[in-house]
Design a protein around this nucleic acid. Structure first.
Lengths: 341, 341
DNA sequence: ATGAAAGCGCTAACAT
DNA sequence: ATGTTAGCGCTTTCAT
């Protein structure tokens, strides 16, 4: 039933030339007569030839595939990252093998193994909440397959990172709250093993210290940033004696749930309590008042990550020099934090 | 620099057996002595052997890769679908090559070409808003590569579909509004070339007719279901002489924006106007009042789609008998539609 | 500018 | 239960 696949031998035979010439023509080899090349290309087209990537991969020991492991696909941010990655990858002739860890180190490891077995040329990863070990990435380095981290990164001398300046973003968010008159600012964040959350917390502390506000550790709440966590944060806030007048939450979805809970409790946002989120998720513009948040360039991050990876694969990039690549983020000021108007 | 890759020949030589035996052992061939198998497996492990999928693919003319094309990755629904697909695929030894069309037929076609060139064993697709042509799927069928559609499907005698009963879901949603006392129900939907939207509209009409309510075509609004569309829907509703008392919107995100706009205009939801959405997106539980919506089993849909595909690939499924597979959906009744309490 | 030929690593038909 | 062998389709050195 299946139509026979056309190979370069078929084309060679018909054109009475050698397979080598056909292969060269198809790969745009310079030393091929342009007439010959043209006739080969035409014939290939006519016969519906498609190159057999396996034979090619087998021969060249390259897969032209990049593995991507993300915590979850279902965020606006990740979707933007992937769109950016795909664009650059496609243009450079690479495929993407994408998988999600669902925030579990265990699944992340399984994904990594699959990628390894598939012999991806490079691996791009953003790590799960609970990942501690680097071991599942080590095997790639062992085979000289570059590993690049983006957003949620691991420090490793041989791995490049593409990130935003989380410290600065946290600093901006907190400074903004302070400048709006907040003096007691709560911070809800995620697993501090992850750079993104540790950084934002650090920025929060910096801003407080700089303005002479004493960081009160009881105002810091480490959660899983789930919707439920947002509700819990509101409960905690409401139960405090010295009630906070501002709250900085490291994730918009969580922040939105928190806002909702606060409103139910009768708080006026921002008058009673100002709120700042993180991610510029669409919901930030759905909730009322609209949520002040930190935009971060997912699309660009995806593009930069893949570009960097491909440069490394092409040897254009010195792998020894792998300082983190830091992208700009931006505080989007909206109603939820504007006490002063 | 790169460590030498271990092949079955290396293992064979060390163990003084033939490569064929090694291959069989590694593939769990029944006719292999369990002692031999064990020693081969141990040695493989010890040497860090990994099978070369290209050589294997080349030989077997199979890639063990399924292509997946979705409109967008950034929805809760799609992310659930993909998680389901991944689980089944991984367990069956298949990889997933995932790409997004961003709702553009043009990109969908480009994605399809990439998948084709990558020789995926099967293609799973949910089609873009504006796709008219089937041509980019035809090439797969030409090579006997099965194509399965899920959620947003195209009718084709040789393609299986995995869907929910959109007509029934639309019927349930609308009937619910009617039973809550609504008499003039607006319907905001997406491109009617897509089964999901056409079906929901059909269900809406059925429910109205059944209750003796005359479907008023001016109450039907075809949009791109974007956030902006939600605002426009609210504007339209407010501008109508005979004002609707209920609205059924075929997408939660759009519904939420619409609700927000309605509340700004001073409408009381559900008293003035009852709202029903679609998808059971997390935002449906963030907006106030919580949004009544239709849950639909993404995770299960993904699992079923891949299972069906793999069955077809294994010849276990008769490809000629490909009635659509219909999954259950469920109306989640919440505050936004409860006029009667 | 083109060709001959070897070989990438694996699998499967056939043989024992 | 195990071995022999051919070949999947391509790329690439070496020759011409």
């Amino acid at each position: 039933m299946t139509e026979k696949e056309i190979t370069i031998y078929d084309i060679a035979k018909i054109l009475a030339i050698s397979p080598a010439t056909v292969s060269r023509a198809l790969n745009d080899h310079p030393a091929i007569n342009s007439q010959t090349k043209l006739s080969i290309l035409n014939k290939a087209q006519e016969l519906g030839y498609r190159s057999n990537t396996f034979a090619s991969n087998l021969r060249r020991k390259k897969t032209n595939t990049l593995g991507v492991i993300v915590p979850r696909l279902n965020s606006n941010f990740m979707s933007a990252v992937l769109a950016g990655m795909e664009e650059v990858a496609n243009n450079a002739g690479y495929n993407l093998l994408i998988s999600q860890s669902l925030e579990l180190e265990k699944k992340e490891k399984a994904n990594a193994r699959t990628m390894f077995a598939s012999r991806v040329d490079g691996l791009l990863a953003s790590i799960a909440y609970d990942t501690d070990s680097f071991e599942h990435f080590e095997m790639f380095l062992g085979k000289n397959v570059p590993v690049l981290f983006f957003d949620r990164v691991m420090e490793h001398p041989r791995c490049t990172s593409v990130i935003i300046d989380n410290v600065n973003a946290g600093y901006q968010a907190t400074s903004h709250l302070i400048s709006e008159g907040c003096r007691r600012i709560m911070h809800v964040t995620g697993d501090l093993r992850r750079n993104v959350y540790a950084g934002r917390l650090e920025g929060y502390r910096q801003a407080l210290r700089e303005k002479g506000l004493d960081p009160d550790e009881s105002l810091i709440m480490v959660t899983d940033l789930s919707l439920e966590a947002g509700r819990l944060a509101a409960d905690k806030l409401a139960s405090m004696d010295a009630r906070p007048d501002g709250i900085f939450i490291a994730n918009d979805l969580c922040a939105v749930t928190c806002m909702k809970a606060l409103k139910e409790k009768g708080y006026d946002i921002p008058a009673d309590i100002a709120v700042v989120g993180f991610n510029n998720d669409p919901v930030s513009q759905v909730i009322e008042p609209n949520l002040t948040t930190v935009f971060y360039p997912g699309y660009q991050m995806g593009k930069v990550a893949v570009k960097t990876m491909i440069n490394q694969l092409n040897g254009a990039q010195n792998i020894e020099i792998n300082d983190p690549i830091i992208l700009r983020s931006e505080l989007m000021i909206r109603g939820s934090s504007l006490k002063k108007g």
